[in-house]
Design a protein around this nucleic acid. Structure first.
Length: 806
RNA sequence: GCCGCGGUGGUGGAAUUGGUAGACACGCUGGUCUUAGGAACCAGUGCCUUAUGGCGUGAAGGUUCGAGUCCUUUCCGCGGCACCA
């Protein structure tokens, strides 16, 4: 009987469900292991085969850890607020909650057909009122801690989407979703003070086991740089201008100042003669979208304001210009230009014929413009001769001693724009009374979304909620004053900032989570998901977690101890899977034709989990063939256990093969290397296929170690060998150290590092025996004729190299 | 431009971390079986060459008894950031 995946897979999925095999209890007396997937946004188009890649990996590890005796928490849920459901609502009038519900049920069906061992009793949905309540509650904690505030800020306004986007949602001046142009428009927004946590978020990276590249990405995003704030006197208006620089050592070479067009002192510093020019320039600059700014990147433009500043180190008057290559959002929005040592300043100075003074002696072979390398200081009085690091130190001290500046640290990280002018998101739990914001009482949570007739944003940037008068207006009975609800909603990331905490206690109505449960389960031991969330979700959720830690609400500073990014599965043509390319592989068809075990092991067999690799249907067929082969080796034509599987003692070779496989699979699982595990199964299967009979105990161990990868097949075989204990909780087999080495070893013999022959030795032969044997090998004898042996290098059990001279 | 990652057969990829390069699989070739196709099974398959032998991990150098692995230079690809002072 050939392997019937349809019947067998359904049978065991039903069994797991009905018996709640994967339900996880809190506080039981086993070491805990929390293994988390990045939960999906349930889109209308369903999964393609790339989506479950990470879920297969976590499922394998979750099952492996259960075999190892861990209490495993492995939950799944839905990130269900978001734009697509809302845009669908705008088009069709269908309420997003209906679309969301349908999509979730389709996603759940697809995820379940792959036989994952989730504890579905902990399933969460970010749009459930019971979940929204606590998302809003956390917002209130942030607000009360002074980390949420309103501000009139230039935002990324996308006219096409009629929405304001976060910096992270804008790619090259276009919206991440849809690629529409994005403009800079000032609007009232809710902001979260993530910048207060810049240092904490940066230093926390040292304590987590994350991929090097993701840590670097976050470090770059936070963008810490050390320098000084330098005070330049402005004699014409009797004020000071603050400038941030990391190159205070070049201060003697600062020949002019550039400030951002939005800088508050522009107005004061502007002289009458330059007014028209400057006003025009500012207007042009403010109209530019991000896209324009990038396109105009090549040519720097600016205008002289007409006023001068005093260089604090030598008292010289230097002109003040404006240019949009200086941006208001970073540092102080003003720079001291040192064309001698900065390429941008060099370009600008050359264009407008501004003076250039070198303050670092370029190396002899240097022939360019700005010199950014190291060298002794020149033209810099008390700094002359000092190299950059020393000169920086000395200048920083001089500035501090003379009250002309101070050392500071700057970050690139900006505050997080937290409001969206949308319907389908968590309402921000704020009312505006007498024009002042107030948070809702905890007892008023959750603040649910009202029903609306039109989902379209108002077009002026206000959310559809602003049209619902009887929702927006709230009358307080005590004073009869009408207060107005906040009509902005939270961005999609809000729910995912803390969902991993809700899994710990998903139906608690009294608290967001029970603190004893939190202490038992946290931190997440392993978190697997796509690298595209490197600076969005992963930075935002760390930020919330750091705040919750400071509030004493969680017990660990970092939420995710170990992070692993799965790679993408590409189409058969090697390009990204997408509908427009027509190269999408549907998992429904794959599972229907080949079964979920085949799909699971194929996705693992394709290559390293973190690499991008193309789908191959013939490769999948190979895995399917392997499963059929394995089945036919162990099960006979009538569908019962093969008569070759018996009580007997296995030959040594088979025992070695088994123990070798156990060792390699255990080692590889610990290192998240699944492709080689699948090879091991194939090698072992090829071996036992040749045997006339095999010990049932060997098969029992084999079934346990294959279970994480091919759980349906494993369960069926487990039943066929007559086992009645629950397979999921069987102990992982140990390997016998003496049996992972074969008795007979092949030793290659090299002459001067080139392989010339090989000899067979037994494991315990001594060096001199091996050398003697090698020297009597026919080929080696001929190579050694008429030569002198200089050296013999023997690496035990591995290789022998004989170094000779002619 | 800056930061990070990577380049191994016709293809996906192995290689105990300095010790037989190409495990395992796909594909291909030949064979067995079959009316035929498919499936299954057996054998072969890095390149050049007649067996012998030589060459081979993007390229060029270096360290070493020995380099895919370490060092230097260089080329190419991918991901991220991008006037951040």
């Amino acid at each position: 009987m050939t392997y019937n995946h349809k019947f067998i897979e359904k049978k065991w999925q039903k069994y797991w469900d009905e018996n709640e095999i994967f339900k996880t209890d809190d506080f039981i007396d086993k070491p805990k292991y929390y293994i988390l997937d990045m939960y999906p946004y349930p889109s209308g188009s369903g999964l393609h085969v790339g989506h479950p890649l990470g879920y297969i990996a976590t499922d394998i590890l979750a099952r492996y850890k259960r075999h190892q005796g861990y209490n495993v928490l492995h939950p799944m849920g839905w990130d269900a607020f978001g734009l697509p459901a809302e845009q669908y609502a705008i088009k069709t009038g269908t309420h997003p909650s209906i679309t969301t519900k349908e999509n979730i049920s389709n996603f759940k069906r697809q995820i379940k057909m792959l036989g994952f061992s989730y504890d579905w009793t902990r399933e969460i949905n970010t749009t459930d009122p019971g979940y929204v309540k606590w998302t809003q509650w956390i917002f209130i904690q942030l607000y009360n801690k002074g980390l949420a505030y309103e501000a009139e800020v230039p935002v990324n306004w996308c006219p096409e989407l009629k929405a304001v986007l976060a910096n992270e949602e804008v790619i090259d001046g276009k919206s991440d979703i849809g690629g529409h142009p994005v403009l800079r428009v000032p609007m009232r927004q809710w902001m979260l003070r993530i910048t207060n946590y810049a240092e904490s978020l940066l230093s926390g990276l040292d304590d987590v086991d994350w991929p090097h590249s993701i840590k670097e990405l976050q470090r770059n995003w936070i963008g810490r740089s050390e320098g000084t704030k330098v005070l330049f006197e402005l004699p014409s208006i009797s004020k000071h201008l603050e400038v941030f620089t990391t190159r205070q050592d070049t201060l003697f070479g600062a020949t002019y100042i550039v400030i951002a067009p939005e800088h508050p002192l522009v107005e004061d510093l502007l002289i009458e003669d330059q007014k028209t020019l400057v006003k025009n320039y500012i207007e042009e600059a403010s109209k530019k979208s991000d896209l324009d700014r990038i396109e105009l990147n090549k040519e720097k433009n600016g205008v002289f304001l007409g006023s001068y500043a005093i260089n604090p180190v030598n008292g010289k008057e230097i002109p003040i210009w404006i240019s949009d290559y200086v941006i208001m959002g970073y540092g102080t929005g003003a720079i001291m230009a040192v064309p001698g040592e900065d390429e941008r300043d060099w370009e600008f100075a050359t264009k407008y014929d501004l003076p250039i003074i070198r303050t670092v002696e370029p190396s002899k072979d240097f022939s360019g413009g700005a010199y950014t390398g190291d060298g002794p200081a020149i033209n810099s009085e008390f700094l002359n001769g000092l190299y950059i690091d020393e000169a920086k130190e000395k200048m920083a001290s001089w500035l501090e001693d003379n009250k002309k500046g101070e050392r500071t640290v700057q970050y690139k990280l900006r505050d997080w724009l937290f409001s969206r002018q949308r319907y389908w998101g968590e309402p921000i739990p704020i009312i505006h009374k007498d024009g002042k914001p107030q948070v809702l009482k905890e007892s008023d949570l959750p603040l649910e979304l009202p029903d609306v007739e039109k989902y379209e944003p108002s077009g002026t940037g206000e959310s559809p909620l602003s049209n619902i008068k009887n929702w927006v207006e709230v009358k307080d009975d005590s004073d009869n004053i009408i207060a107005l609800r906040e009509t902005n909603t939270m961005p999609q990331w809000a729910g995912s900032c803390w969902y991993y905490l809700r899994y710990l206690d998903p139906s608690n109505d009294e608290k967001a989570w029970d603190s004893e449960k939190e202490k038992y389960w946290m931190p997440v031991d392993l978190y697997i998901g796509g690298a595209e969330h490197a600076v969005l979700h992963l930075l935002y959720s760390r930020f919330w977690h750091h705040v919750l830690f400071d509030l004493g609400l969680v017990s660990t500073k970092e939420p995710f101890k170990k992070l692993f990014n799965q790679g993408m599965i590409l189409g058969q043509d090697g390009s990204k899977m997408s509908k427009s390319r027509g190269n999408v592989i549907n998992p429904d068809e794959t599972v229907e034709t080949y079964g979920s075990d085949s799909m699971r092991i194929y996705e693992m067999f394709m290559g390293p989990l973190d690499k991008a690799k193309p789908w191959s249907t013939t490769g999948l067929q190979g895995c399917s063939r392997f499963i059929k082969k394995l089945w036919s080796v162990l099960v006979d034509d009538e569908g019962v256990l093969s008569s070759n599987v018996i009580e007997k003692k296995d030959d040594k070779e088979t025992l070695q093969a088994l123990n070798m496989m156990i060792k390699k699979i255990s080692d590889n699982l610990d290192q998240i290397q699944f492709n080689t595990c699948v090879s091991e199964f194939m090698i072992f299967t090829n071996h036992i296929q040749k045997l006339e009979s095999i010990n049932i105990d060997t098969i029992r161990s084999f079934i346990i170690i294959m279970n994480p990868f091919m759980p349906h097949l494993a369960q069926e075989l487990w039943e066929l060998i007559g086992e009645t204990n629950e397979l999921t909780y069987q102990a992982w087999p140990d390997y016998d150290k003496d049996l992972v080495i074969s008795d007979e070893i092949v030793i290659p013999i090299q002459i001067n590092g080139k392989r010339r022959s090989e000899i067979h030795i037994s494991a315990n032969e001594s060096e001199s025996e091996v050398i003697a044997k090698a020297k009597s090998d026919d080929k080696i004898v001929s190579y050694l004729k008429n030569t002198t042996i200089i050296k013999e290098i023997y690496i035990k059990g591995k290789i022998l190299n004989i170094v000779i001279k002619q």
